[in-house]
């Protein structure tokens, strides 16, 4: 694995909503195995950037390459097949399904064919793997509960577990810690770091909680008003005057 070959290259992404330039000519590379943080004040275009990268929104300009392959204009279900997982800023579990079904449905489309999924095993042979994933996130006692009946923080964990189920090379997490209480926060961070180590999965993490980002990420990119204003290690970012201004000056 060459650390200098990016797993994902983002080049010149721009997105305008009417009068608002939500994302303005953003370029960056993501390297294998790193946990890249993407921070910035509310409304600085982080989620929009994710949605442009992942084909949920059509970017006005710019390209995205994953593993050397151009993925712009691909549908998000195809991106998932290419090994790109994601979570959304808003809670995105399937509330009326059990935790186990949530996790299985997150992996089943990566097993077999349409035909085998109709006539094969009801669980697509994923129950054991799903149980391991549930256990990894310490949710085993909730396996058969409806996802919608879980606490907010637990649902966030299910949400994250779903993004990992297909064994992606790169996972984009949009505010995984948003709304998660303090006791669960440490656990979530520890789980993410441990997953990153065990599977060498690359993460891009949008986060608001500075404490969380600084201790989770290996590298951080700062966005303000749709453009990158700083990039560096957590220590460099902490002492960067522009970042301090962007946050305090708002």
């Amino acid at each position: 694995m060459n650390a200098l070959t990016p797993v994902m290259s983002v080049r010149g992404i721009s997105k305008q909503f009417d009068a608002i330039k939500a994302v303005d000519d953003v370029s960056f590379d993501v390297y294998p195995g790193e946990i890249l943080g993407l921070i910035g004040p509310n409304g600085s275009g982080k989620s929009t950037l994710f949605n442009c990268i992942l084909g949920q929104l059509a970017a006005d300009r710019g390209t995205v390459e994953v593993g050397g392959q151009a993925v712009s204009n691909k549908r998000s279900c195809d991106l998932s097949k290419l090994g790109i997982g994601r979570t959304f800023q808003q809670l995105s579990v399937f509330p009326e399904m059990t935790v186990l079904d949530n996790i299985i449905v997150a992996g089943q489309e990566h097993e077999g064919t349409m035909i085998s999924r109709l006539f094969g095993a009801p669980d697509a042979g994923l129950t054991e793997q799903a149980e391991q994933m549930i256990a990894f996130f310490r949710l085993s006692h909730l396996r058969d509960e409806q996802a919608g009946s879980l606490s907010y923080g637990q649902q966030k964990l299910v949400d994250a577990a779903m993004a990992f189920m297909a064994g992606p090379n790169i996972v984009l997490l949009d505010e995984p810690a948003g709304g998660v209480n303090l006791t669960m926060l440490a656990g979530l961070k520890e789980r993410l770091i441990s997953y990153n180590r065990e599977h060498a999965t690359t993460f891009v993490v949008i986060e608001h909680n500075m404490e969380f980002v600084m201790s989770l990420c290996t590298r951080i990119i700062v966005l303000a008003e749709g453009a990158i204003i700083a990039e560096g290690t957590p220590d460099q970012i902490r002492s960067n005057q522009m970042v301090i201004d962007a946050y305090l000056g708002g």
Partner: peptide
């Protein structure tokens, strides 16, 4: 299961492949 996922959250379903 995929049909139910489509009903409950189509955008999330799509992002899961």
């Amino acid at each position: 299961r995929a049909f139910r996922a489509l009903r409950e959250n189509p955008i999330r379903a799509e992002s899961l492949g």
